[in-house]
């Protein structure tokens, strides 16, 4: 996993300035505990678990990715970033996978949303596709909406499935990043079929479906 180091470092510096005590104090101390080795990993997991209670859930507008970010989500992303910095590109996927597995839904959501900065080369596509096998609308939205990662790294088939399931989950696909650039005849057919199915069942169409078909 290749990190977008410059961007993250700059955003982290900005975040540290924006935080107010006692959240700031806690966060700075937490970063100190994010060392390499087993202890560092355990610390990272514990700090991430506590982050919402320590940092709060206000909206944080300064994070360099689109979408809705809370202070807790951003703090969790930086904890992950700092632990990954201790490992080389090859080991990072292992470290990430373990922390991800141990995270609760909100921790997972924070990390999925930031994947484009954690893995600039698209090595974690399989992980993202697997993570998308969820019934939670919020977790799915973390991958599908406002997230530049899928359009950048998914193959056509995977990207089409992402859009289709977003429609099924009644998410606003106008917020799928890069959807127009990734538009293709198969996607149009899949979406048209879905619309016909819904019409036959007498159900409402998911939002954004006509917008997409008119493009």
């Amino acid at each position: 996993m290749q990190l977008a180091e410059d961007k993250l470092e700059q955003a982290l510096a900005e975040f540290s300035v924006q935080l107010r005590d006692p959240a700031r104090q806690w966060f700075m101390q937490a970063l100190q505990g994010v060392n390499c080795g087993e202890k560092g990993l355990q610390n990272t997991a514990l700090y991430s678990a506590m982050a919402r209670r320590k940092l709060g859930e206000e909206v944080y507008p300064g994070f360099p990715l689109p979408g809705h970010w809370t202070v807790a989500h951003v703090g969790r992303v930086f904890l992950l970033y700092r632990i990954l910095l201790h490992y080389n590109n090859e080991s990072r996927a292992l470290v990430f996978t373990r922390l991800y597995r141990e995270g609760d839904e909100q921790e997972k959501i924070a990390w999925l949303k930031a994947m484009s900065l954690m893995d600039t080369q698209g090595l974690m596509v399989e992980h993202m596709v697997h993570a998308a096998r969820t019934n939670s609308q919020e977790a799915y939205a973390a991958i599908a909406l406002y997230n530049p990662y899928p359009a950048r790294h998914y193959c056509q088939e995977a990207f089409n499935q992402l859009v289709l399931k977003a429609l099924f989950m009644d998410l606003d696909i106008r917020q799928v990043q890069g959807i127009l650039q990734r538009m293709n005849p198969t996607m149009k057919r899949l979406v048209t079929d879905l619309k016909e199915e819904r019409r036959a069942a007498g159900r409402v169409f998911p939002q954004g479906i006509d917008w997409l078909l008119s493009q």
């Binding site: 507008p61 994070f63 360099p64 990715l65 689109p66 979408g67 809705h68 939205a141 909406l145 406002y146 530049p148 998410l171 606003d172 917020q175």
Partner: peptide, 10 residues
């Protein structure tokens, strides 16, 4: 969030 008016920063 999903329909929010949060500006795209990137």
């Amino acid at each position: 969030a999903l329909r929010g008016q949060n500006p795209v920063v990137q």
